[in-house]
Amino acid sequence: MMRRFGIALLAVAIAAGASSLTAQTVNSGLRGPTPLNDEGPAPPMLPNRNTSERESRNYPEQPPVIPHSIDGYQIDLNGNKCLSCHARARTAESQAPMVSITHFMDRNGQFLASMSPRRFFCTECHVPQNTATPPVSNDFTDIDTLLSRASPGGRR
C-alpha cells in the first residue's frame, strides 16, 4: 500500500515538474523571450562606423580594421576598389595608408614587385566596424595592460 502510494506521489511530482518546465519560457540574454523552437525577429541593421580615423590595434598582428564605409566596393579579379586609394602609387593623392609591405611578400617571404595575389582580397582580413553594441561583452585585455600590471608600481 505504502509502495503504491509512493509511486503515485512520484508520478504526480514528475507530471507537475514537467508541466512547470513546459510553461516556463527560457529567457536567455541573447535570444530574448523567443521560444527555442522559434526564430525571433531580427534586430535592425545598424550603419558601419564611418569616421575615417585610424583605430588602435588590439595586438600587433591584428589586421587594421577599416574605419570607413565600403558599401559597393568591388574586389574581384577585375579590380580592387580599395587599391584605388591604398596602393603604393595612389597614396600621395589619396593620403590613405599604404598597404603594408608584408602584402608584397609571397609565402616564402620573398618580396614581389607588386601585391602578392594571396593578399589581394582585402576583406578576408580587414573588416569595417559596426555601430551596434555587442550582445556579449568582451573582457579582452591587451598586452600593454598586462605588462603594466607586472611592472613595479603598475596597477595590479
Binding site: G72, Q74, L77, N78, G79, N80, L83, S84, S114, M115
Partner: peptide
C-alpha cells in the same frame, strides 16, 4: 558605382 566593373588593368587610378 551603378554596374560592375570590367577588367580594370590599365585604367588610370586602378591597379
Amino acid at each position: 558605382i551603378a554596374h560592375q566593373l570590367p577588367d580594370m588593368r590599365g585604367v588610370p587610378g586602378w591597379q
